[in-house]
Design a protein around this nucleic acid. Sequence first.
RNA 1: GGAGAAUUAGCUCAGCUGGUUCAGAGCAUCUGCCUUACAAGCAGAGGGUCACUGGUUCGAAUCCAGUAUUCUCCACCA
Length: 871
Amino acid sequence: MSIAKTYNPKEAEEKWYAYWMENGFFRSTPDEREPYTIVMPPPNVTGVLHMGHMLNNTIQDVLIRRARMLGKNACWVPGTDHASIATEAKVVAMLKEQGIDKKSLSREDFLKHAWEWKEKYGGIILKQLEKLGASCDWERTKFTMDPDLSESVLDTFIRFYNAGYIYRGVRMVNWDPQGKTALSDEEVIRREVNQKLYYVRYKIKDSDEHIVIATTRPETIMADTAICINPNDERYTHLKGKKVLVPLINREIPVIEDEYVEMEFGTGCLKVTPAHDLNDYELGQKHNLEVIDLLNDDGTLNENAQILVGEDRFIARKKVAKMLEEVGQIEKIEDYKSQVGFSERTDAAIEPKLSMQWWLKMDELAKPALEYVENGTIKLIPEKFFASYKHWMENVKDWCISRQLWWGQRIPAWYNEKNEWVIAKTEADAIAVFAEQGKTSEGLRQEDDVLDTWFSSGLWPMSVFDGVRNPDNADFQYYYPTNDLVTAPEILFFWVARMIIMGHDYTQKPPFKNVYLTGIVRDKLGRKMSKSLGNSPDPIELMGQYGTDGVRVGMLLSSPAGNDLMFDVSYCEQGRNFANKIWNAFRLVKGWETIDSPATDAQKTAATWFESRFNQAIAEIDEHFANYRLSDALMATYKLIWDDFCAWYLELVKPAYQAPIERETLETVKRLFQQVLKLAHPFMPFLTEELWHDEIFGTRDAKDCIIVASYPTAQSFDTQIVKDFEIVQQIISEVRSIRNSKGISPKIELPLAINATNIDFSTYQESIVKLANISDLTFVQDKVQGAVSFLAGKNECFVLLENNIDVDAERERITKEIEYLKGFLVSVDKKLSNERFVQNAKPEVVENEQNKKADAEDKIKILEESLASLS
RNA sequence: GGAGAAUUAGCUCAGCUGGUUCAGAGCAUCUGCCUUACAAGCAGAGGGUCACUGGUUCGAAUCCAGUAUUCUCCACCA
């Protein structure tokens, strides 16, 4: 019969998750209740649960569970993201292991492999989320490449195209010569590398002079189309309007002037290579320079280079340097450190390259998205992110939405044999459009362009409810706009901003009301937890070790919104200990025998006090939730349960060893126990559900689960009883402290006398005797000689010890306290005698000071009398 | 280079628009307890010049300026 001394989470977790699923508690369909909706930030379909997911989804689950208990129609939509680049890279790597080269496959065959891979491994992370207790509506699980979501993406492309927001154009992109695709900025990792800075001499036309230019990329000089100097640079005034010759190939290029050139850097002269550098490109645009692209897609030199055609760019670099040296056009070579971009997936050095890409015009679209946040329609939590959101929105650049990949939604552009193109959803539509325009559709084809993944995830809050294709459907009408979005600040722009933009464009409404930005999970050394660093614990293992509830509590304890959290397993330990505490409180109550009698007055008082504290705590917790202070809400719950419920309330009503408890009181304890379990449920779903169903709480219907129980609401309560009880607690603590300092065992009863001045202790008498282990509690009007005394509020208390008290020590202690109070009094007096204070401060502040003064004077008086009576 | 944020106890953090003894919480630490729910526990205790320097104010952890250190984001010099 005996029940385990410690809580064993494993069994409960599996049992109750299955039970919740069976009973459809996670399911949501539109009804007359108020909806509360969260769409899960879809993890990469390739993903494996890491600490970031753990934090993020724990927060969402807490919010959704609480909303459900508050009677809202809670709907949490899960799903995964197809993550073009990451997934394609994984599939390519897998194929490589099997000895298959991607290039040898047709698009169709590759996609077949990719889908197979997705079916096999794609659901792992969602399964892992179940372990964490995520109460998602799994029947609504979506994938960004589900047919309906993909169709939404095409519809959106066409919509934006027809509205004139999408254009096709040659722009500088991050080119991965190994993967042969454009990359977004996010996919480029910058690292500092050691390079050489070559000082190259360019001959000035019709002169013996030359001009020296510093470059790290001599292999691109054949693509130079100008030399640029700063117009304010007096050293080069004589070069204005001159022409110079590109070394090795002797092509003539102009000297242009632009203040962009830093006079202090290098030689103060810049070679302009518009095809191979972003800034040069912009400079070239400004000055109408020719663009010469001397690189092939694979990073080798093409015919435009004139020399070294077919050589790889890095080999060419060395060779060009050598050739320059041979003709005496290298002045010097310096070591130099600079930032170079590398492809996240292939690790190839990124080549800024001009290429034809699809773009979404952002400036107009961004405006309403900024307004939403500016005027508070969408709240960012914490607010500090608004500044950078605003900065980004006001300086938004056009978005390169095409990727040269196979895994993703194909850009719905169709080309004929003449390379004319039209935008159309289907092949048939394309033929029709070509026909309309009187053009041929011979040789109809699509390019290997897919849309950036963020383009599809930008639709997520709408597309999961099919709101793009079918905005009038009941789900979309009911659930959209969603309530809270919980995500990482890193993707505020890439994802959150784009959802707002797209959501507004379709619906004229924001896609969500609140954006809760979580922190980054770091290790104790402050490093971001990552797979590559190997400093991230496996959440699944953690849950096995500390229990899911323990880990959930551990994650939340240290994670104020938006601040990074320095994760340490000790938090999980704390969470586990808390679970165990509740478990043992339950064991205590479960073990009680009853006697058929009504509650005693002391028990009634204890219950009244606890209920007051309980209501006070609910108000605090509600406020914390309203401000998205989840860790504070949890801490308030923690203290209510551990301190108020276990350490005080249960101790107060606990019967003597093997004695029965009054039936009425036991019923009250059980009722209150269930109430605190409800408060804990959002944080600790498994433990609370396990206890909820124990027979001591009576038999329950199958559907009577804590997950759908109603969350307690704050009732008004008597604040006086809470205040009075604080004095009682103080008295008990003081007696214990006296014991401790005198080495008196807690088992030895002590007599206590109280000179009650402003509290009626009659209802607390029994409690004090019990918890302070008092042999005889008396009330007196005078000093008690030979006792250790202390003040609880203005009530002087006396503990009579068997041994004679150390009068000197007593005198010293009281004197110290008097000194302290007098010091305090001086500071209060100083304020009150300051005319400017009395004049300027608010009346209630002044009144407060006067109360403090009176209070301190009273206490000093009592203590001084004690001191006098000591001798 | 631009922008934003942070600095409070050994650690992680609260402290909202200046005014209760405002200097707090949890953890950790120390002391005493295997007390009949829980040693994953109980009781008690110690611990901070609120980064530094000025200023505003009757009054500053709180507001302002500067300094130092740290972090994040954005853009990057050939």
